[in-house]
C-alpha cells in the first residue's frame, strides 16, 4: 500500500469524510446522522488514511492521544448533561438557545443535546481510532 496515488487519494478521502462527518453531526438532530454516525464516518476516514500511511501518521493527524480524545468526549457529554443542573433542572435535560427566532421559525437552535452529541462524536472518533492505532501498532 505504498503507492503515492493511494496515499494522496486517501488523504483527500479523509478530508472529505471528516467534513462529511461534521455535516452528519450537525444535522443529526433533524435528519439521519448524529454523533455516532458522524464519529464513525470520521473514524473510518482516519482509518483509511492510516491504512495507507501507517498508524504513526494517524497519531500525527490527531495531534492528541486518542484515549484522551475519547475521554474528553465523555467529559463533554457529562458537562452537557450537567449544564441544566446548574439551572435547577434534571441531569441531561435539554437547554436550548434559539438564535434569530421568529414567531413562526425557531431559527438556529443550539442546545445542550447538541453539545452532548459532540461529546459522543469525539468519544467515538477517539475510541475507534485509538483501537485501530493500537492494533495496527501491535501487529
Amino acid at each position: 500500500m505504498n503507492s503515492i496515488i493511494f496515499r494522496t487519494v486517501s488523504r483527500l478521502l479523509m478530508g472529505l469524510m471528516l467534513l462529511f462527518s461534521l455535516f452528519l453531526l450537525w444535522r443529526g438532530h433533524n435528519e439521519p446522522g448524529g454523533g455516532f454516525i458522524g464519529g464513525l464516518v470520521a473514524a473510518a476516514g482516519l482509518v483509511v488514511y492510516g491504512l495507507a500511511d501507517g498508524p504513526k501518521s494517524m497519531r500525527l493527524i490527531l495531534r492528541a492521544d486518542p484515549g484522551a480524545i475519547a475521554l474528553t468526549g465523555l467529559l463533554i457529554a457529562v458537562i452537557a448533561g450537567l449544564m441544566p443542573v446548574v439551572g435547577g433542572s434534571d441531569f441531561l435535560t435539554g437547554l436550548w438557545l434559539f438564535i434569530g427566532a421568529t414567531p413562526t421559525d425557531k431559527g438556529l437552535a443550539l442546545g445542550t443535546p447538541l453539545l452532548f452529541d459532540i461529546g459522543v462524536y469525539l468519544a467515538v472518533v477517539g475510541g475507534v481510532v485509538g483501537m485501530v492505532i493500537a492494533i495496527e501498532e501491535s501487529l
Partner: peptide
C-alpha cells in the same frame, strides 16, 4: 439517543472510550 434516553448514550460512550483504552 441524546435526550429521552441520553443516560444510555452516556454509558455507551463510556464503553467506547474505555474499550479503546483497554485495547491500548
Amino acid at each position: 439517543l441524546v435526550d429521552f434516553r441520553a443516560l444510555d448514550t452516556l454509558g455507551e460512550v463510556a464503553v467506547v472510550a474505555i474499550a479503546a483504552l483497554a485495547v491500548i
